[in-house]
Amino acid sequence: MNTYKESLIDGLERLLADPKVFLLGEDVEDPYGGAYTITKGMSTRMPGKVLNTPMSEQGFTGLGVGMALAGYKPIVEIMFGDFSTLIMDQILNHASKFVEGFEKRLHLVVRDPMGGYRGYGATHSQSLEKLYVGLPHIAVITPSVLHAPGELLVKSMELGVPVIFAENKLDYTRKMFAAEKIAEAFEIKYHGGDFPVAEAGFPGEEPEVTLIGYGGLVHPLLQMMYDLYMEEEVAVRLLDVSSLSPMDFDLLYSLVKDDAKVLTIEEGHVPFGIGDAIISNLAQRGMRCQFRSVGAKQHIIGTSKEAEALALPQIDDIKELILNW
């Protein structure tokens, strides 16, 4: 699969072949085929399986929860991840409670496209996955150009807990990293099981800094790493986490325990971000190194390029940070 989108479509179609799987969301049917045309053609090819809902995020997410409670396997699509604030009550106060309280395995995946850098402004650009992490019986899965979304999607449906599947809108337009030219310079290893940590580095090089990130920033970070290596002869490596919650902290620790510099990077707002939690966990294990975390700053995400740059992390700034560390 060459592109992120192809992989995602493949995963959706594999899931939809199961009679218990349905995809529900706003404008997902043909001729529109979803806000990012991910489901284009599917409602025609598989009549009755891909269904337009009214604009009732809370309502149709609850509908998905009920389907899952009755043994079905719904995929719920939220048009913009920003709107996942509206569905939290159904995921947290209903679905997650049923898993332990009612001893039910719930097969439910919420596709939740996150991310900015597109000029869509404050309510259509956020990365809100941090609202859902660290809560019992909710999984937060983050595909990227290193973690094929289709594969993760299919595995997510088998987790038995509600899954926030945090896709990234810019990734819809990207190739999987293996299909990129610069990939040849890298060595990519995968650690862990179904939801692995991808390690991207340069063969034979001791990294000066370990980056820990996920999701839509992985693509520009890999390009930045390539530039740093080629232009500045600075080798850094990236650990790309595909399951934010639960997070395999043991695995992460085993991968970084001898490092001197660890930098976490996320698109969502910090402090109190994903990276802060990772750093806290590593520090509590007695790891002694320099830690930094980067994320969106305390501004709303403006629409102009300048306004957006006030809030969202900028690759040039990250590069500077690494070079001057």
Binding site: T61, G62, L63, G64, G66, M67, A68, Y72, P74
Partner: peptide
């Protein structure tokens, strides 16, 4: 909404 989903 959960009950509506069950009905589905």
């Amino acid at each position: 909404p959960v009950t509506v989903g069950i009905a589905f």
